[in-house]
Nucleic acid binder design. Structure first.
Lengths: 149, 149
DNA sequence: GTAATTGCAAATTCTTTGCACATAT
DNA sequence: ATATGTGCAAAGAATTTGCAATTAC
């Protein structure tokens, strides 16, 4: 599924739910679903303004909620004091590495963690539902002084 | 170290830093350091009021900051919209299991995770600093209907 | 046409801060 | 005595909500 397809999936979702397809909703979806980064509301709003497609903050929040309900976007909280949003793509579940210097987020998948966490939960009498792992560290670029950002 | 000792450690910290030992600081430390649960500011304030030792919200926040700086308390964010605070005890690092029904938090330690996360970080070019794992699930009590809370 | 959305501003929630008064050392 | 803490109320930051004007279908 490439970017355009995902935006179309959002349009389909809106139509299926008898929700109007508005300019704002499409612009927000285009930016958020095409983003390689984990965007904050501020970054998203800023990018829309840059494109000459400014959208009110309330609308941004309301549209993100729709994108989350449609399953196309996932909410992330890296304890920065605000949330970030990530296109769901087709990845069922993955972990995050967060560079504590530049804030870059790297995703990876590790099958073993699913099993490990299920066993850990069971060992303590819990029925596992999901888990969340964030590894904090310093990325290669920041370590070698090739600081991008 | 038992509860009283930890409260004394806080007093020692205050004295070492030439900070006044006040009734409020001691009451907050007593409640927070003795708690088996991960308290929120609201729960902590409520408990103080119940003990007839009501303390202003601002003071609670300011004292928690001192407890954190002294290393006796650790901040936790379970994405509930507010933070929780946990006595640091002597545990160097541990993971959390959060019951999605009753909110109970269970701690456990697993040495292998330290190694695993270091390797995962390295595999992606990161120098690991720390990690954070929360497993969400349903605890034994909630599953069997013996719901406490 | 009509129901839903938009955008602004006001409201909310958690947390922090300014300041007059109170307290520890 | 004097520096510091305390509590209240106001300020902040992120997010939500009410409502008149606007737009999709």
């Amino acid at each position: 599924m490439d970017h355009d397809d995902v935006v179309e999936a959002f349009q389909a979702y809106l139509r299926d739910h008898n929700l109007p397809v508005t300019r704002q909703r499409l612009e927000i979806a285009k930016v958020l679903l095409a983003s390689a980064r984990h965007l904050s509301v501020e970054e998203l709003t800023e990018e829309l303004r840059r494109r000459g497609q400014a959208v009110g903050l309330a609308t941004v929040y309301r549209t993100i909620e729709l994108l989350v309900r449609s399953g196309l976007v996932v909410v992330r909280d890296f304890e920065e004091g605000f949330k970030r949003f990530e296109p769901a793509r087709d990845i069922p579940h993955h972990e995050h590495l967060l560079c504590t210097v530049c804030g870059t987020v790297t995703e990876f998948r590790d099958e073993r963690l699913e099993r490990t966490t299920t066993l850990l939960a069971e060992a303590h009498g819990y029925l596992r539902q999901r888990h969340r792992l964030v590894i904090y560290g310093v990325c290669a670029a920041c370590r070698t002084g090739t600081t991008p950002s």
